[in-house]
Protein backbone atom coordinates (compact mmCIF):
# COMPACT_ATOMS: atom_id res chain seq x y z
CA UNK A 1 0.00 0.00 0.00
CA UNK A 2 2.62 2.48 1.08
CA UNK A 3 4.79 1.15 -1.72
CA UNK A 4 2.83 2.71 -4.54
CA UNK A 5 2.53 6.14 -2.93
CA UNK A 6 6.22 6.78 -3.51
CA UNK A 7 7.04 7.10 -7.22
CA UNK A 8 10.61 5.95 -6.60
CA UNK A 9 9.26 2.60 -5.50
CA UNK A 10 7.08 2.12 -8.55
CA UNK A 11 8.35 -1.02 -10.22
CA UNK A 12 5.29 -1.49 -12.38
CA UNK A 13 5.95 -3.00 -15.78
CA UNK A 14 9.51 -3.98 -14.98
CA UNK A 15 9.76 -7.64 -15.82
CA UNK A 16 13.51 -7.64 -16.28
CA UNK A 17 15.28 -9.52 -13.56
CA UNK A 18 18.64 -9.60 -15.28
CA UNK A 19 19.67 -6.18 -14.09
CA UNK A 20 18.06 -5.93 -10.66
CA UNK A 21 17.92 -8.16 -7.64
CA UNK A 22 14.78 -8.64 -5.60
CA UNK A 23 14.48 -8.65 -1.87
CA UNK A 24 15.63 -5.30 -0.61
CA UNK A 25 14.93 -4.51 3.01
CA UNK A 26 11.68 -3.08 4.30
CA UNK A 27 13.11 -1.36 7.32
CA UNK A 28 14.36 2.19 6.88
CA UNK A 29 18.00 1.87 7.83
CA UNK A 30 18.69 5.58 7.67
CA UNK A 31 16.25 6.51 10.44
CA UNK A 32 17.84 7.68 13.67
CA UNK A 33 16.72 6.79 17.15
CA UNK A 34 15.16 9.33 19.43
CA UNK A 35 15.99 9.64 23.12
CA UNK A 36 14.97 7.11 25.77
CA UNK A 37 13.77 7.97 29.22
CA UNK A 38 13.65 6.15 32.53
CA UNK A 39 10.25 4.69 33.35
CA UNK A 40 10.59 2.52 36.39
CA UNK A 41 7.91 0.24 37.73
CA UNK A 42 5.34 -1.74 35.84
CA UNK A 43 5.85 -5.00 33.96
CA UNK A 44 9.12 -6.04 32.31
CA UNK A 45 7.75 -5.28 28.86
CA UNK A 46 4.86 -2.87 28.75
CA UNK A 47 3.58 -1.93 25.32
CA UNK A 48 0.55 0.11 26.25
CA UNK A 49 -2.23 1.81 24.31
CA UNK A 50 -0.50 1.29 20.97
CA UNK A 51 -2.37 2.95 18.11
CA UNK A 52 -1.08 3.14 14.57
CA UNK A 53 -0.63 1.43 11.20
CA UNK A 54 1.43 1.44 8.02
CA UNK A 55 -0.37 4.18 6.12
CA UNK A 56 -3.16 6.56 6.88
CA UNK A 57 -5.51 3.94 8.34
CA UNK A 58 -4.82 2.60 11.81
CA UNK A 59 -4.52 -1.14 12.26
CA UNK A 60 -3.92 -1.16 16.00
CA UNK A 61 -6.44 0.49 18.26
CA UNK A 62 -5.37 1.09 21.82
CA UNK A 63 -3.66 -2.29 21.97
CA UNK A 64 -1.81 -3.27 25.14
CA UNK A 65 0.65 -6.12 25.60
CA UNK A 66 2.66 -6.82 28.75
CA UNK A 67 5.11 -9.58 29.59
CA UNK A 68 6.79 -10.29 32.91
CA UNK A 69 10.29 -11.66 33.26
CA UNK A 70 10.59 -15.31 32.22
CA UNK A 71 6.97 -15.39 31.13
CA UNK A 72 5.55 -16.71 27.88
CA UNK A 73 2.92 -14.40 26.41
CA UNK A 74 1.00 -15.51 23.34
CA UNK A 75 -0.99 -13.36 20.94
CA UNK A 76 -3.77 -15.20 19.14
CA UNK A 77 -6.71 -14.08 17.07
CA UNK A 78 -8.38 -14.47 13.70
CA UNK A 79 -6.65 -13.65 10.42
CA UNK A 80 -6.14 -9.95 9.90
CA UNK A 81 -6.55 -9.18 13.58
CA UNK A 82 -3.26 -7.29 13.63
CA UNK A 83 -1.28 -9.90 15.59
CA UNK A 84 1.92 -9.54 13.59
CA UNK A 85 1.38 -5.79 13.36
CA UNK A 86 1.19 -5.58 17.15
CA UNK A 87 4.46 -7.49 17.37
CA UNK A 88 6.09 -5.19 14.84
CA UNK A 89 4.84 -2.19 16.79
CA UNK A 90 6.54 -3.51 19.93
CA UNK A 91 9.73 -3.89 17.92
CA UNK A 92 9.57 -0.39 16.44
CA UNK A 93 8.88 -1.38 12.86
CA UNK A 94 5.68 0.64 12.86
CA UNK A 95 5.12 4.31 13.42
CA UNK A 96 2.88 4.60 16.45
CA UNK A 97 0.53 7.54 16.71
CA UNK A 98 -0.22 6.80 20.31
CA UNK A 99 1.00 4.67 23.18
CA UNK A 100 4.45 3.73 24.34
CA UNK A 101 6.78 0.76 24.70
CA UNK A 102 8.69 0.28 27.93
CA UNK A 103 11.31 -2.41 28.45
CA UNK A 104 13.00 -3.10 31.76
CA UNK A 105 12.24 0.30 33.25
CA UNK A 106 13.11 2.34 30.17
CA UNK A 107 10.82 4.02 27.68
CA UNK A 108 12.14 2.91 24.28
CA UNK A 109 9.26 4.17 22.11
CA UNK A 110 11.56 6.40 20.04
CA UNK A 111 14.20 3.76 19.29
CA UNK A 112 14.73 2.15 15.89
CA UNK A 113 14.44 -1.66 15.68
CA UNK A 114 18.20 -2.08 15.46
CA UNK A 115 18.70 -0.05 18.62
CA UNK A 116 16.02 -2.05 20.38
CA UNK A 117 18.12 -5.16 19.67
CA UNK A 118 20.91 -3.44 21.57
CA UNK A 119 18.50 -2.90 24.47
CA UNK A 120 17.86 -6.63 24.72
CA UNK A 121 15.07 -7.40 22.29
CA UNK A 122 15.41 -10.38 19.98
CA UNK A 123 13.06 -10.74 17.03
CA UNK A 124 12.41 -13.75 14.83
CA UNK A 125 10.38 -12.72 11.75
CA UNK A 126 7.82 -15.12 10.35
CA UNK A 127 9.53 -15.51 6.97
CA UNK A 128 13.00 -14.66 5.66
CA UNK A 129 14.43 -15.22 9.10
CA UNK A 130 17.76 -16.80 8.17
CA UNK A 131 20.67 -15.98 5.87
CA UNK A 132 20.04 -18.78 3.32
CA UNK A 133 23.42 -18.86 1.58
CA UNK A 134 25.40 -18.80 4.80
CA UNK A 135 26.17 -21.84 6.92
CA UNK A 136 24.32 -22.48 10.17
CA UNK A 137 27.38 -21.46 12.13
CA UNK A 138 27.77 -18.23 10.15
CA UNK A 139 24.10 -17.49 10.79
CA UNK A 140 24.73 -17.74 14.51
CA UNK A 141 27.89 -15.65 14.20
CA UNK A 142 25.92 -12.93 12.43
CA UNK A 143 23.36 -13.08 15.22
CA UNK A 144 26.16 -12.19 17.61
CA UNK A 145 27.45 -9.39 15.39
CA UNK A 146 26.88 -6.63 17.94
CA UNK A 147 28.77 -8.55 20.61
CA UNK A 148 32.44 -7.76 20.93
CA UNK A 149 33.04 -10.34 23.66
CA UNK A 150 33.56 -14.05 23.14
CA UNK A 151 30.25 -15.54 22.09
CA UNK A 152 31.51 -19.13 21.94
CA UNK A 153 29.67 -20.05 25.11
CA UNK A 154 26.36 -18.71 23.83
CA UNK A 155 26.85 -20.70 20.65
CA UNK A 156 27.41 -23.84 22.72
CA UNK A 157 24.17 -23.11 24.59
CA UNK A 158 22.31 -22.75 21.30
CA UNK A 159 23.79 -26.03 20.08
CA UNK A 160 22.75 -27.68 23.37
CA UNK A 161 19.24 -26.37 22.88
CA UNK A 162 19.09 -27.45 19.22
CA UNK A 163 21.49 -30.42 18.83
CA UNK A 164 20.57 -30.86 15.16
CA UNK A 165 22.14 -27.47 14.40
CA UNK A 166 25.51 -28.62 15.66
CA UNK A 167 25.32 -31.57 13.30
CA UNK A 168 24.47 -29.30 10.36
CA UNK A 169 26.63 -26.33 11.29
CA UNK A 170 28.57 -26.34 8.02
CA UNK A 171 25.46 -26.58 5.84
CA UNK A 172 23.87 -23.50 4.26
CA UNK A 173 20.76 -22.56 6.22
CA UNK A 174 18.74 -22.34 3.00
CA UNK A 175 19.15 -26.08 2.44
CA UNK A 176 17.61 -27.09 5.76
CA UNK A 177 14.05 -28.27 6.35
CA UNK A 178 11.43 -25.81 7.55
CA UNK A 179 11.65 -26.90 11.18
CA UNK A 180 15.44 -26.81 11.22
CA UNK A 181 15.40 -23.40 9.63
CA UNK A 182 13.12 -22.12 12.39
CA UNK A 183 15.63 -23.48 14.89
CA UNK A 184 18.41 -21.55 13.15
CA UNK A 185 16.23 -18.43 13.25
CA UNK A 186 15.55 -18.77 16.96
CA UNK A 187 19.20 -19.63 17.59
CA UNK A 188 20.33 -16.54 15.69
CA UNK A 189 18.08 -14.33 17.80
CA UNK A 190 19.36 -15.97 21.00
CA UNK A 191 22.97 -15.15 20.14
CA UNK A 192 22.58 -11.55 21.33
CA UNK A 193 21.50 -12.93 24.72
CA UNK A 194 18.20 -11.05 24.56
CA UNK A 195 16.06 -10.31 27.60
CA UNK A 196 12.91 -10.53 25.51
CA UNK A 197 12.49 -12.89 22.59
CA UNK A 198 9.74 -12.14 20.10
CA UNK A 199 8.59 -14.89 17.75
CA UNK A 200 6.26 -14.27 14.84
CA UNK A 201 4.49 -17.56 14.17
CA UNK A 202 7.47 -19.81 14.81
CA UNK A 203 5.52 -22.93 13.87
CA UNK A 204 4.11 -21.69 10.57
CA UNK A 205 4.44 -24.41 7.97
CA UNK A 206 6.04 -27.10 10.13
CA UNK A 207 4.61 -30.53 10.93
CA UNK A 208 2.73 -31.11 14.22
CA UNK A 209 5.58 -33.19 15.64
CA UNK A 210 8.13 -30.45 14.90
CA UNK A 211 5.69 -27.92 16.29
CA UNK A 212 5.50 -29.74 19.64
CA UNK A 213 9.27 -29.92 19.75
CA UNK A 214 9.64 -26.21 18.97
CA UNK A 215 7.19 -25.37 21.76
CA UNK A 216 9.20 -27.53 24.16
CA UNK A 217 12.35 -25.61 23.22
CA UNK A 218 10.57 -22.31 23.69
CA UNK A 219 9.56 -23.36 27.21
CA UNK A 220 13.19 -24.25 27.87
CA UNK A 221 14.29 -20.81 26.69
CA UNK A 222 11.73 -19.16 28.98
CA UNK A 223 13.04 -21.18 31.93
CA UNK A 224 16.43 -19.48 31.53
CA UNK A 225 14.73 -16.20 32.43
CA UNK A 226 14.11 -14.86 28.93
CA UNK A 227 10.66 -13.37 28.44
CA UNK A 228 8.85 -14.54 25.36
CA UNK A 229 6.24 -12.77 23.27
CA UNK A 230 4.85 -14.94 20.51
CA UNK A 231 2.24 -14.71 17.77
CA UNK A 232 0.65 -18.07 16.96
CA UNK A 233 -1.80 -19.52 14.49
CA UNK A 234 -2.02 -22.78 16.40
CA UNK A 235 -3.94 -21.05 19.15
CA UNK A 236 -4.85 -24.05 21.30
CA UNK A 237 -1.35 -25.51 21.54
CA UNK A 238 0.18 -22.12 22.06
CA UNK A 239 -2.22 -21.17 24.85
CA UNK A 240 -1.39 -24.46 26.58
CA UNK A 241 2.19 -23.31 27.13
CA UNK A 242 1.32 -19.63 27.69
CA UNK A 243 1.49 -17.88 31.02
CA UNK A 244 -0.52 -15.10 29.49
CA UNK A 245 -2.71 -14.98 26.42
CA UNK A 246 -3.97 -12.08 24.38
CA UNK A 247 -6.85 -12.47 21.98
CA UNK A 248 -6.77 -9.64 19.46
CA UNK A 249 -9.69 -8.73 17.24
CA UNK A 250 -9.44 -5.92 14.73
CA UNK A 251 -6.34 -4.51 16.32
CA UNK A 252 -7.78 -4.26 19.82
CA UNK A 253 -7.56 -6.39 22.93
CA UNK A 254 -10.62 -8.64 23.12
CA UNK A 255 -9.70 -11.07 25.89
CA UNK A 256 -6.67 -11.06 28.15
CA UNK A 257 -6.06 -13.76 30.73
CA UNK A 258 -3.78 -16.64 31.60
CA UNK A 259 -3.47 -19.24 28.88
CA UNK A 260 -5.30 -21.75 31.02
CA UNK A 261 -8.21 -19.45 31.72
CA UNK A 262 -8.59 -18.52 28.05
CA UNK A 263 -8.67 -22.20 27.10
CA UNK A 264 -11.38 -22.74 29.69
CA UNK A 265 -13.44 -19.71 28.67
CA UNK A 266 -16.45 -21.04 26.71
CA UNK A 267 -16.78 -17.78 24.78
CA UNK A 268 -13.15 -17.89 23.62
CA UNK A 269 -13.43 -21.61 22.85
CA UNK A 270 -16.53 -21.10 20.77
CA UNK A 271 -15.35 -18.11 18.77
CA UNK A 272 -11.62 -18.70 18.37
CA UNK A 273 -10.71 -22.27 19.18
CA UNK A 274 -13.42 -24.02 17.21
CA UNK A 275 -15.44 -25.39 20.19
Amino acid sequence: MSRSSNPYQDDRGNKDRSITKEGGGEIDATRQSGPTSAASGGPFLAAENMTGGYGAADILHDCTLTVEKGEIAVIVGPNGAGKSTAMKAVFGMLNLRGGHVKLDGEDISALTPQDRVGKGMGFVPQVNNVFPSMSVEENLEMGAFIRRDDFGKTMEQVYDLFPILKEKRRQPAGELSGGQRQQVAVGRALMTQPKLLMLDEPTAGVSPIVMDELFDRIIEVARTGISILMVEQNARQALEIADKGYVLVQGANKYTDTGEALLADPEVRRTFLGG
Binding site: G23, G24, G25, E26, I27, A29, T30, P113, Q114, V117, G118, F123, P125, N128, N129, V130, F131, P132, S133, M134, E138, E141, M142, G143, F145, I146, R188, T192
Partner: peptide
Protein backbone atom coordinates in the same frame (compact mmCIF):
# COMPACT_ATOMS: atom_id res chain seq x y z
CA UNK B 1 36.48 -11.89 7.97
CA UNK B 2 33.72 -10.39 10.09
CA UNK B 3 33.17 -7.53 7.65
CA UNK B 4 33.13 -9.88 4.67
CA UNK B 5 30.59 -12.13 6.32
CA UNK B 6 28.44 -9.15 7.21
CA UNK B 7 28.46 -8.21 3.52
CA UNK B 8 27.25 -11.67 2.55
CA UNK B 9 24.61 -11.50 5.27
CA UNK B 10 23.42 -8.14 3.94
CA UNK B 11 23.27 -9.60 0.44
CA UNK B 12 21.17 -12.51 1.71
CA UNK B 13 18.70 -10.61 3.84
CA UNK B 14 18.93 -6.87 4.40
CA UNK B 15 16.39 -6.61 7.20
CA UNK B 16 17.77 -9.50 9.18
CA UNK B 17 21.28 -8.11 8.78
CA UNK B 18 20.07 -4.79 10.13
CA UNK B 19 18.39 -6.52 13.06
CA UNK B 20 21.60 -8.40 13.76
CA UNK B 21 23.32 -5.08 14.33
CA UNK B 22 25.08 -4.88 10.96
CA UNK B 23 25.32 -1.26 9.86
CA UNK B 24 23.99 -1.14 6.28
CA UNK B 25 25.72 2.14 5.43
Amino acid sequence: TRTGKSMRAFSDNEDLALLSGINPE
